[in-house]
Design a protein around this nucleic acid. Structure first.
Ligand SMILES: [Mn+2]
Ligand SMILES: [Mn+2]
Ligand SMILES: [Mn+2]
Ligand SMILES: [Mn+2]
Lengths: 218, 218
DNA sequence: AAATATTTTTAGACTAATCTAAAAATATAT
DNA sequence: ATATATTTTTAGATTAGTCTAAAAATATTT
């Protein structure tokens, strides 16, 4: 049996190791989980005993294949629920994450398989993040961050890095959504702000915005 | 903050007191919760401190208005999720309870309000149990148990008392569902079995079945 | 290569929820 | 009304997850 807390640590380690590759250190987990390093040490010992993680004292931690499987499955559930909330229950993309944090821990294979089918097997969540299939395979998308886009080119918005409510509401109020077409007009060297053209307007966005919006060339 | 465990105890007390009226004793809760009397004592002290229950040592426990409100809200969520699972995710009525036991603890008013609307404000769950509205009002239905139905009369099946998978599957295999019309043909005094007529067949059901199937005269 | 700073682990304590075993209160039977 | 049985509570432990403070290991400076 795996506890809800263990699941959350595994998920945090997965994200921190950028998909289970490099080792993750204790303080990074503590900060991600909003807990103390000593608590993390205890937990990674437990995860190690249960074979979800490999751990040598003072050397950081990595997920085992079992651990990765758990992480990907939780991410799958999280993102499917986010799609459900947006598509069926009129949630906006800045409201879904918190509820999905809870729904992702419901344990029922039938539930998630049927939900997947009910949503017609979505491949991306409301923030443009890929939804792994039952076997844990992600559909990889070519995307670049607005900060690195080239002046004069036209792109489609395909995702966000920051999924905070503040950032998503900012995008809403500037009429930027997934699928929106933008053209890069100017990069200001002084503060790295970027002028972009939308369908009917031109706006200037700050560097922070430019670093958190993903685009695909069209 | 109310914990998941506290919610489950409150729900158990609510059911055992037939909707929050009479006092409930420790052993009854222990048996309903599959735990020990000593654990129950600890918990009802805590519920009492938090003002969800009234409790005097050795005198059993009742829910306060706050406690009842919590109980009814969980029941509302449980039953709405059950409807969702059956109506939208192809669950059968014997599969929903277990998953709903977990979903009922997800805390989001928007979630449950939108789910309610998405399901078009259902008033009964897949087992014929009424779904309280946002204010906690139940729609009461006139129903009698098959064991007390009169020979010669025709009824509609409107609910079940036992919601165990075994019983529900038994009903499935005998083509009895909510809405099915039956006529009581004969009551056998020897073993209290009852012969009933369905649309195209006649079957004899045992006393246990007759005690767990609810009917409405038509 | 020491000295210093940072990170990580250990030790010991706390809370929520549980358990067993014993004590206390209440209910039932003679 | 007293003895017996049942129910309920208390006392003391246990487990998961957390914390603080101190110790140990590792990393960084000088
Ligand atoms: Mn999310
Ligand atoms: Mn997301
Ligand atoms: Mn149920
Ligand atoms: Mn039900």
């Amino acid at each position: 049996m795996i506890t809800l807390t263990e699941e959350n640590y595994i998920k945090a380690i997965y994200y921190l190791s950028s998909n289970g590759e490099k080792t993750v250190n204790t303080n990074a987990i503590a900060s991600a989980m909003q807990t103390k390093a000593s608590s993390v040490t205890d937990m990674i010992k437990k995860l190690s005993e249960k074979n979800y993680a490999d751990y040598k004292k003072y050397q950081g931690v990595t997920l085992t294949d079992d651990g990765k499987r758990v992480a990907v499955n939780i991410i799958r559930k999280h993102r499917l629920w986010e799609v459900f909330l947006v598509e069926k229950l009129n949630f906006s993309w800045d409201e879904v994450h918190e509820v999905a944090e809870h729904l992702e821990h419901i344990k029922s294979d039938k539930l998630i398989d049927e939900l997947d089918a009910f949503l017609e097997f979505p491949t991306y969540d409301p923030h443009g993040d890929p939804i792994p299939d039952k076997e844990g395979n992600f559909k990889h998308i070519e995307k670049i961050v607005l900060a690195k886009a080239e002046v004069g080119s036209t792109y489609k918005c395909v995702g966000v890095d920051d999924t905070s409510s503040n950032f998503l509401k900012y995008l809403d109020s500037n009429h930027i959504a997934l699928g929106t077409i933008i053209t890069v007009k100017h990069k200001e060297p002084f503060d790295n702000s970027i002028k972009i053209a939308l369908e009917n307007s031109e706006i200037v966005v700050s560097q922070s915005v430019a670093k958190n919006l993903y685009l695909k060339k069209i």
